[in-house]
């Protein structure tokens, strides 16, 4: 807990290598490389349409990157986040049965859920809650993989099953407490005010017990007071729950205040990376934001 800001640990938790993403003619990401150190708060910033959400989608497995690798390295356990999505067969697979079987396995049972199971959770820019379920149900669903899902035990309401449900409820209440939503436990998620929905989505992501949590514009639509609370919450997650945070944010005050490392994206390319102090004075970043070359839209 104390060695949070210790200088560069040996191996990064997440490393993104040569990530390229094409949508038809659009080159949304072009050879993106960056690393997220364990237990850090790393921010991904850039102007609108720079490709930040696309990076998230590639990391969390919702898009299959055209090229490049995403490697999660947690305490010596390395997961190739691209492989678990299921890849096309390569010619070499036809002479290498184990590789063939592995790819077949991931093609059949792989998918973005595997990325979460490997320890990466996320929130969405346009909040995606289960709107017509209660707040509590949202958090219980998030614990799906940790619950007793045996049908027979559930039907007979055995001790094992009851204990599992009770634990889930406790975890859910714990997280409600953390994000300050205990009062709303039995309200429909879709009926909550916007700021609460954002916090609930973070709590829901945390219920999956991730190593890395990716937050896509968590402060969008929040008022100044809520934004301050959010930065406290994010710090709390990192300090007390041992997770690494990767966040996309437009609110520079928030970003500069809480992150240790910043990656700047523009037109699908990394144009700068470094500490907040370095980024603040980087001329390339200023140019991208102020649009010295291009016309400024805002």
């Amino acid at each position: 807990m104390s060695d949070v800001a210790s200088p560069t640990p040996p191996s990064p938790l997440l490393s993104v290598q040569g990530l390229t993403m094409r949508f038809g003619g659009i080159l949304a990401l072009n050879n993106v490389n960056f690393e997220v150190q364990k237990n850090s708060i790393t921010a991904l910033i850039g102007p609108n349409g720079a490709g930040k959400t696309t990076v998230f989608n590639c990391v969390t497995g919702f898009y299959k990157a055209t090229e490049g690798q995403v490697i999660l390295n947690d305490n010596g356990k390395t997961t190739n986040l691209r492989k678990v999505l299921g890849e096309k067969f390569q010619w070499s697979d036809y002479v290498n049965p184990p590789a063939f079987l592995e790819r077949l396995y991931y093609k059949t049972f792989g998918g973005s859920h595997r990325v979460n199971q490997a320890g990466v959770a996320r929130t969405f820019q346009n909040i995606r809650l289960f709107r017509e379920m209660t707040v509590m149900e949202n958090l219980l669903v998030a614990q799906h993989n940790h619950l007793d899902r045996n049908l027979i035990r559930g039907m007979l309401n055995t001790k094992h099953y009851r204990a599992s449900e009770k634990r889930a409820l406790e975890t859910a209440y714990y997280w409600l407490e953390v994000v300050n939503l205990t009062e709303d436990a039995n309200r429909l998620a879709g009926d909550l005010p916007y700021g609460n929905q954002r916090r609930l989505e973070i709590a829901r992501a945390m219920c999956t017990e991730p190593k890395l949590v990716c937050l896509d514009e968590p402060a969008a639509g929040l008022n100044p007071r809520e934004t301050v609370e959010l930065s406290t919450l994010i710090r709390h997650l990192r300090d007390k729950h041992n997770v690494t945070v990767l966040l996309i944010e437009h609110d520079m005050g928030l970003v500069m205040g809480i992150s240790e490392h910043i990656v700047v994206l523009d037109y699908g390319q990394v144009i700068a990376a470094g500490t907040p102090a370095e980024i603040e004075v980087n001329p390339k970043v200023l140019a991208a934001y102020l649009g010295t070359e291009e016309g400024d839209a805002s």
């Binding site: 949508f23 038809g24 959400t53 989608n57 919702f62 898009y63 969405f124």
Partner: peptide
């Protein structure tokens, strides 16, 4: 048809 990437 073009393969569609579901927008997230």
């Amino acid at each position: 048809g073009k393969p569609l990437v579901e927008k997230v």
